[in-house]
């Protein structure tokens, strides 16, 4: 209970600092903070479409945030979610285009499995280099990110694009996840879809796995101290490889939000940095898989608020606030001890 109160205080302080920073920024631009906050509430918080957009943006961030937090907690600084996401999404799209005749009940699980496999495949090189050669995963995953983006751009522009566009052909109708609008009549006009529910399930599954299963305990032990884990009989390098592949698989699923749930094709650059922002989401959530959900919502909210307010204050203000949020939270975490981040 005490811990919960302490956490709640943190969240409140962070939000207060961000609100203060926004107020100062708004005043500096000679705009009215009252008007800005009124718009935030009327157009984002209490508006079906605005809220839906926030959830839509949060979906991809929950996946990448989960991928990062799982890796971070188990001692691997996987910053390759961006590349793993593209690899997964591209593989998924190819499978969808290849099997246009399959019914949805087969096609969707097949595509999701391919996406996870594609993301994991993109994590193989960093995983093996880390386990066998001791190469630092930050360097290798970052390099793999750039290779993935260049590769996707090449494949799209040289082979798979529709004329005059930077995206693939449209997937068969069966390859679609229903939106919240069709399922529940919620969030009219916004593409938020069933992949949000999938992300919730995965968050719960990771939490269960890490804290309720023996293997999860071993994975966390490697994160706390590889040497101690090795002494107690955990196979550290095998665990390292598994953690990295699992993290890659979760990142790989992130693209389902866009490919299955929204546009039904793969487009160059569609993730627009969700993989990188996932790192921030995980950190702010202190690598807690359930905490990733509100954390992703906070970042998605800032980006949606930025878009909505763009006519009043430049939305870049919110990019700056996102960076500030990361610094505030990590400094506060270090200052006030609390739970460590691994």
């Amino acid at each position: 209970m005490k811990a919960v109160l302490r956490e709640a205080r943190w969240v409140a302080i962070t939000i207060a600092i961000l609100a203060l920073a926004l107020t100062i920024g708004t005043l500096a631009l000679k705009q009215s903070p009252v008007e800005v906050f009124r718009l935030i509430f009327s157009e984002v918080v209490f508006d079906g479409y605005g809220l839906g957009q926030t959830f839509y943006k949060a979906t991809m961030l929950i996946f990448t945030g989960l991928a990062c937090s799982l890796a971070f907690r188990c001692g691997l600084f996987n910053i390759g979610a961006e590349g793993q996401l593209y690899a997964g999404a591209f593989a998924m799209t190819l499978v969808g285009l290849k099997f246009p005749g399959l019914p949805a009940i087969l096609l969707i699980p097949l595509m999701l499995a391919t996406a996870a496999a594609g993301g994991a495949a993109w994590a193989v090189v960093p995983a093996v280099l880390k386990a066998k050669r001791g190469a630092h995963e930050v360097i290798t995953t970052m390099m793999m990110n750039f290779v993935a983006m260049a590769m996707a751009n090449y494949l799209i522009s040289a082979h798979f694009h529709e004329p005059e566009t930077i995206h693939t052909a449209e997937l068969p109708a069966a390859a679609g996840l229903p939106s919240f609008e069709t399922m529940f009549g919620l969030f009219k006009g916004s593409p938020v879809n069933a992949s949000l529910l999938l992300s919730f399930i995965i968050a719960a599954a990771i939490a269960y796995f890490l804290w309720r299963t023996p293997t999860g305990f071993e994975w966390r032990a490697v994160g706390v101290s590889p040497d101690a884990a090795r002494t107690s009989g955990v196979k550290v390098s095998a665990t390292t490889i598994k953690v990295m592949l699992a993290s890659g698989a979760i990142s790989g699923l992130a693209g389902s939000n866009f490919v299955l749930g929204y546009k039904h094709y793969f487009e160059q650059g569609f993730a627009s940095g969700a993989g990188f922002l996932g790192i921030a989401v995980a950190l702010v959530a202190k690598n807690n898989p359930i905490g990733v959900i509100p954390s992703a919502l906070l970042f998605a909210f800032m980006s949606q608020a930025g878009l909505t307010l763009n006519r009043t204050i430049p939305r870049e203000m919110f990019d700056i606030l996102q960076a500030a949020a990361i610094l505030i939270v990590v400094i506060a975490q270090n200052k006030l001890g609390g739970e460590t981040k691994k």
Partner: peptide, 17 residues
Amino acid sequence: IVSSLACNFLAAGLCRF
């Protein structure tokens, strides 16, 4: 690594701003 990433986010946002 976290701090440098935050600096990159900040620089990108601030420069556009």
